[in-house]
Nucleic acid binder design. Sequence first.
DNA 1: CCGCCGATCTACT
DNA 2: GTAGATCGGCGGA
Length: 201
Amino acid sequence: MKLKPGYYLNEDVVGLAKDLLGKVLYTKIDDEITAGIIVETEAYFGIKDKASHAYGGRRTNRTETMYGAGGIAYVYLCYGMHHLFNVVTSVENDPHAVLIRGVEPLVGIEIIEKRRGMSGTKGAISAGPGSAAKALGIDRAFNTKSLLGDEIWIEDHGIRYDEENIAATPRVGIAYAKEHALLPWRFFVKGNKYVSKPNKV
DNA sequence: CCGCCGATCTACT
DNA sequence: GTAGATCGGCGGA
């Protein structure tokens, strides 16, 4: 069920971003377990990707997390109020990552509703990277944590989507990345309610 | 040391 | 449709 270490060492981060659709992301905080099906992701292609914090091989306290071996969490604060959660992939010193942009609530719905202050029937409860992280209670304390432990992990429940039900589009919010902004490295499940706003192909 | 701005979300007109 | 919230990382002085 739980994904193995080898899964995260895959050097094809774009393929992994697509494969993570349908996997289930769990967190356990103060003995409260919540989980959601991953329905939207984006790939960040290491040092060659202008949209990545690690572009050009930049190493700082913040980006150091992404240089670790695949299988850990990279969480950072954006716009002073949103925590964005990424899965670090590939081998050590190859800073690839997959941003989790949307999850479909699966376990602990009441807890998720309390964290978000809205009904689980609303797609907005966990659509978009900031909302998805908050729904699962993820904050900067999760940065560098292993995805193989018992605080945060990912399971395979055998959920699979056909090619025709997966959309690949340019990433969101990275216009500054110039030509790299056009690469179709955002993946989402077509028609799913927990996919963030620009839900078009 | 200072100043800018971001892999965003929500409320309100 | 659009403004406001809110803060740490980063680069330049």
